[in-house]
């Protein structure tokens, strides 16, 4: 396959979307069952209604706030434990099994525990996002800090940087940044999932709450109209991080 220009890729994507939407609309009208498959026109009308009523932006605001607080908490916690297992072999062998287990356990399986330990308020929801997002950050911090280039540490020391903490900030973290950002990008994707789980299974709220409550009322067109912004939020966040990531690379 030959390389494609950006313009060509955009064109292909647009054509793909248009074909998909037309097929959907035609099929939905032929089936004539809005419960299982509402036509695109109905979904767009529902979306417009959600926007005009302000419901969507309120939900989106709640969701983004939860997501950001959760990701910040996950970053802080991931950093502390990641740095710990990067520094200490003992800590690595002691803690690694738990992090690996957490990584493969579906967040939704932990919701009942979060509910009894932390309640269904905001702290509980933040913890669900942290559980979903923390491990990729933690592992990327650990591997990024462990692989710090020894020669650059020597350079910094020879020019007068003294002590572990200054070395951490002048060399280790900066050298690890591309890896850290890759971890953060993964974490953001998982964080969106955690956010939706928290909003549908702990207490209804945000975008997840919209989806769940419209689903319960069998308003499938509104369900689709709520899923769309959720996906866009995830894609937007991951793209943003990927962009920062590219700027931090030096080759």
């Amino acid at each position: 396959m030959s390389a494609r220009s950006r313009k060509d890729v955009r064109r292909d994507q647009l054509i793909g979307v248009a074909v998909f939407l037309v097929l959907w609309e035609v099929t939905a009208r032929a089936l004539d069952n809005p419960l299982t498959m509402p036509p695109i026109s109905a979904i767009l009308a529902a979306l417009l209604d959600l926007i005009l009523s302000g419901e969507l932006f309120l939900a989106l605001g709640q969701s983004i706030f939860l997501l950001i607080v959760g990701l910040i908490a996950a970053t802080v916690i991931g950093f502390v434990f990641g740095a710990l297992i990067a520094r200490s072999q003992t800590a690595y062998w002691m803690l690694n099994p738990y992090f690996s287990a957490l990584f493969v356990t579906p967040t939704i399986a932990l919701v009942p525990l979060v509910l009894v330990w932390f309640g269904f308020g905001f702290p509980g929801r933040v913890i669900v996002v942290v559980l979903a997002a923390v491990v990729p950050i933690l592992f990327s911090v650990a591997s990024g800090l462990r692989d710090a280039p020894g020669d650059l540490i020597d350079v910094a020391r020879s020019f007068g940087v003294k002590g572990e903490i200054p070395l951490l900030f002048t060399v280790r973290i900066r050298a690890a940044l591309p890896v850290l950002m890759a971890g953060l990008r993964l974490a953001a994707g998982r964080g969106v999932v955690g956010m939706a789980v928290a909003e549908t299974y702990l207490r209804l709220g945000g975008i997840g709450g919209l989806i769940k409550s419209y689903g319960a009322m069998f308003q499938t067109d509104y369900v689709f109209a709520s899923i769309l912004p959720l996906s866009l939020l995830g894609i937007g966040l991951v793209t943003l991080i990927a962009r920062v990531e590219r700027r931090l690379h030096w080759t």
Binding site: V155, R174, A175, L248, W250, T251
Partner: peptide, 9 residues
């Protein structure tokens, strides 16, 4: 330094 030791960033 032998391998220059420049900060690539």
């Amino acid at each position: 330094f032998q391998t220059f030791g420049l900060f690539p960033w």
